[in-house]
Simulated scan of single mutants.
Amino acid sequence: MNNVKDITYIKDFGLNLKKIRLEKNFTQEILAYSSDLPISQIGRIEIGEINTTISTVKAIAKALAIEPKELFDF
């Protein structure tokens, strides 16, 4: 099987998450607390270091009071 990990897409997702988080005036700490995720995980997603899961996307979207699809609008 070919490697399907798209680094550019993962980084773009993280940048979009950061943009939305800042628009909502959330710090990484507030988002981490609100989504019940470790703050380090939020940071790693935002810099494109990790390829996050669908469940994590859902938790982040809920914490930001947005639809999950908005996180992919980049």
Rank of each mutant, 00 (worst) to 15 (best):
K58L: 05
K19H: 09
A65N: 13
V4W: 03
N3H: 10
Y33K: 14
A59Y: 10
N16K: 15
Q28W: 05
I45N: 05
K11Y: 09
F74S: 07
K5L: 11
R21L: 12
T52G: 00
R44D: 11
L71F: 10
L71I: 03
N3L: 10
L17D: 06
K18T: 09
N25W: 08
E67G: 00
S40G: 15
F13L: 15
I39K: 15
A59D: 15
N2W: 05
P68A: 03
K5E: 01
I7S: 09
R21G: 12
I20K: 04
I47N: 09
T8H: 01
E70P: 00
L31E: 11
S55Q: 12
K24I: 01
D12N: 10
G48C: 03
N16Q: 12
K18I: 04
L64E: 04
V4L: 10
N2Q: 06
E49D: 06
A32M: 11
K58W: 06
Q28T: 07
T56N: 13
I10R: 14
V57G: 08
N25K: 15
V4G: 03
L17Q: 00
L17E: 05
F74C: 01
D36W: 11
R21H: 04
F72R: 08
D73I: 02
F72Y: 13
S55D: 14
R44Q: 10
D6T: 04
G43S: 14
I30F: 08
K18L: 14
Y9C: 07
N2I: 08
S35D: 12
I7N: 06
A63S: 15
I54L: 15
P38W: 03
I20Q: 02
A32K: 07
N2D: 07
S34R: 13
S34D: 14
A65E: 15
L64C: 07
M1Q: 13
L64T: 04
I54C: 10
P38K: 06
N2V: 08
N25I: 07
I42K: 00
N2R: 01
F74Y: 15
N25T: 14
I42A: 02
V4E: 09
K24Q: 08
I54A: 12
N25A: 11
N3K: 09
A61H: 09
K5S: 03
F72S: 05
D36M: 06
P38M: 07
Q28C: 06
L17R: 10
N2F: 07
K5N: 04
N25Q: 12
A63H: 12
T52A: 02
I45E: 01
Q28M: 03
L37S: 09
I60P: 08
L15Q: 12
K69W: 13
D73N: 11
T53H: 14
T53A: 02
